[in-house]
């Protein structure tokens, strides 16, 4: 009978020839399994969007501050063309606490020109700015023009409620089930909820959500975030943004995959 090999860790040379061959084969198989796993799990990821978060770059922008109802800065980008940049706080928070210092000086900032340094977030024509320090928000000595709202009427949309900070650049992916908890935290922290929709021609549009009185709505929509939904509301156009006034009771969760994927 062939002598059976028996390995003992503290006995030098006890690792037999046949055992060595088996171990080598096992290592190669595991290595193959590992590389196959790395390839499959990386290759079969859904494409990420070309959204951008300039985490390490600080940009200074100047524009007219308005709360409609979320803090925004109206910035001139060309003659007669304006962009409304949504202002956000650091982390998962609203920009409002960063304006408290100025509000102590000026009772109302609506229509005032502010100069703010922060990190830009942008995707698909929308721009947002993260403020990380209240000291970087400066009040200029002028007043500006705030955008006018244009009433468009009652409409029904299919889409997904997202937090714009993550969706437009901070996280990839910034939507869907994987991201739901984070979006709940962001919107709970004061970041405005946005309905992201895609029409039949894959054209995306975004709607800042408010209550029926046009006031900020946050906690009321938390349970609908990241779920494909049908939402009915009244639409106002605010230059490059739409505002959708809704009653959260009218949000209908759809049992289907989201078209914004």
């Amino acid at each position: 009978m062939a002598k059976k090999e028996f390995y003992v860790s503290y006995v030098e040379g006890s690792l037999g020839t046949k055992t060595k061959v088996t171990l080598k084969r096992f290592v190669w198989i595991c290595l193959g399994f590992t590389i196959a796993g790395a390839f499959l799990f990386s290759f079969f990821q859904k494409p990420f969007k070309n959204s951008t978060f300039e985490l390490t770059n600080t940009t200074n922008i100047t524009g007219t501050f308005h709360q409609s109802p979320y803090p925004m800065l109206r910035v001139k980008v060309a003659e007669g063309t304006y962009k409304n940049i949504v202002l956000l706080g650091f982390g998962k928070s609203s920009a409002n606490p960063y304006l408290d210092n100025l509000l102590a000086q000026e009772k109302d900032l609506h229509g005032k020109i502010l100069s703010i340094s922060g990190n830009l977030i942008y995707y698909n024509g929308k721009t947002l700015l993260q403020i990380t320090d209240a000291e970087k928000v400066k009040l200029e000595d002028q007043n500006g023009k705030v955008p006018k709202k244009e009433f468009l009427g009652e409409m029904v949309f299919e889409g997904e409620i997202i937090d714009p900070k993550c969706y437009f650049g901070v996280m990839k992916p910034g939507f869907g089930k994987i991201h739901r908890s984070c979006a709940v935290r962001c919107i709970s922290g004061g970041i405005p909820p946005v309905l992201a929709t895609t029409d039949k021609n894959s054209i995306a549009e975004y709607y800042l959500l408010t209550d029926l009185q046009g006031k900020p709505i946050n906690d009321e929509v938390l349970s609908f975030i990241g779920k494909p939904s049908e939402i009915k509301g009244i639409v106002d156009k605010l230059e490059d943004w739409y505002i959708l006034k809704i009653d959260p009771k009218n949000i209908l969760i759809l049992n289907k995959n989201s078209s914004i994927y």
Partner: peptide, 9 residues
């Protein structure tokens, strides 16, 4: 950290 930190809870 990504999904739960820097929030209100």
């Amino acid at each position: 950290f990504q999904f739960h930190a820097l929030g209100d809870v």
